[in-house]
Design a protein around this nucleic acid. Structure first.
Lengths: 257, 257
DNA sequence: ACAAAAGTGTTGCCGATACACCCATGA
DNA sequence: TCATGGGTGTATCGGCAACACTTTTGT
């Protein structure tokens, strides 16, 4: 009975007023301790981890839905968020036996329930500043965690594939996306920025050439401060010159990596 | 009565077994007489032109649906086809009064009919060889026509926006897509290939540099033949070295335009 | 023979890479 | 004082753009 009520709540709160056959999934990237990470969550009673996602309300655009999911998951608004691909394989959801899982909990849902629909998912990727994120748990979510992209677990449905596609897009888009601005804190050093690029690209870059290049874009401001406490020579702090940054992005940051 | 039957047919043939809320739309590019063209069609009783599109059968992937639409429209199979964006604005279909149009014909459909659903559309673009296309008319289609992309008419829904987005993607993807191979006939001259690129990019290119660059990729084979009948010096004919082409595409054709 | 189009070669510039030296800091 | 990391400068190389001359063809 308890369970039945829960199923009913679940239905009304999450699935009562949503469109069938369409969803959004967000690959939320963060950067911490020199690792590129993704925010994943594990749904109640489901073993596999999954990407934060959700369905559309009838009056909501795809973009709005993605922003809403992001806000529900990270508490953040006005985040950099970009659609990158729609996943529509016929059997993309076949690896999960929802009926079995729910049955074990004594939850019965009609076979025509939205949850079992064959669904096209539109993928978005987000760049967020790690330290600002404090995900909340909702009724469906049992656990959340940041994973190193290289060590991501087996996920629900085709979510591993979606994550890989997001990463690939991110790499190709490095020139056009405000990567540093969104993934790093307000102030950062040149080596830190370089580490971010190296981590995303998965290869090392020449220190001197990197600095010349990035400064060449004219989108960084060097501050008077330096980062103290390091074991060696203290590096300068930089921040983004937002006005210049967005101006530069429109024309693309040229150059290949 | 006649009309009612038609409405019923329409329903069974086209909408009886499809998913609601999702569709695909194809921007089909061709090249003819030095113009980049798109294949548009006009649906029966609807004034505006539209992109060829359709809904998904329950057992069909997005890609399969796009290929099916393409085949229905052009008779072509194994065509270069690429997904480029999902369009999901809340009001993207608001500019058309289906109820009014159908009412004028005496066709009554239930307000919950799939046709009136709020729909997310996944955009694909295709590159086809103009001369090979012979579109067929189906029960819903009244007229089809190739339009110069620069002179496309006002279209249904947000189809103008979808077409623009496709064109923008095509330009950015010039390096990665087998543009020439799909849009030109088997054999072609260097000036013809250059015209294609110039038309897509919307700007003129230096003849000598263009030739050096394209030949530099090592994906073209020069034939012994020349194109005769021109008023002046007869140019060589080329064809693609398919093996080399696909090998080169994997690494990307480098270089920016 | 002449006009118009097509084939080919050379130069110079700019950006990216490769590489070396000096400086600051904490242990 | 030394090891380590951070700041800065220079030489070279390659790709692309700019550009000119010759050849072919139909009229």
């Amino acid at each position: 009975m308890e369970q039945k009520i829960q199923a009913k709540n679940l239905d009304e709160q999450r699935f009562g007023r949503v469109l069938p056959h369409v969803s959004v999934d967000c690959v939320i990237f963060g950067f911490h301790e020199n690792q590129l990470r993704v925010l994943l969550l594990r749904l109640r009673s489901i073993q596999e981890w999954s990407l934060p996602g959700g369905r559309l309300f009838p009056d909501e655009s795809l973009d709005d839905a993605a922003h809403r999911v992001l806000k529900e998951r990270t508490g953040l608004q006005n985040i950099f968020l970009k659609q990158f691909y729609a996943f529509g394989d016929r059997h993309r959801m076949d690896n999960t036996d929802f009926h079995g899982i729910l049955a074990k909990q004594g939850i019965q849902l009609d076979p025509s329930h939205v949850l079992f629909d064959r669904t096209i998912s539109v993928g978005y990727y987000a760049l967020v500043e790690f330290s600002q994120v404090t995900p909340g748990l909702d009724i469906l979510t049992e656990e959340w965690r940041w994973w190193d992209v290289r060590e991501a677990p087996v996920m629900l449905f085709d979510h591993n594939e979606i994550m890989s596609a997001a990463l690939k897009t991110l790499r190709r888009q490095l020139r056009y996306d405000p990567v540093g601005l969104n993934l790093l804190p307000e102030k950062f050093t040149m080596p830190e920025l370089q580490k971010l690029y190296e981590t995303i690209l998965g290869k090392t870059l020449d220190r001197r050439n990197f600095q010349k290049r990035l400064l060449g874009y004219g989108i960084l401001k060097r501050l008077e401060e330096r980062r103290l406490g390091g074991a060696h020579k203290s590096p300068y702090l930089y921040c983004f010159d937002r006005e210049q940054y967005f101006k530069a992005l429109e024309s693309g940051l040229e150059h290949e990596w």
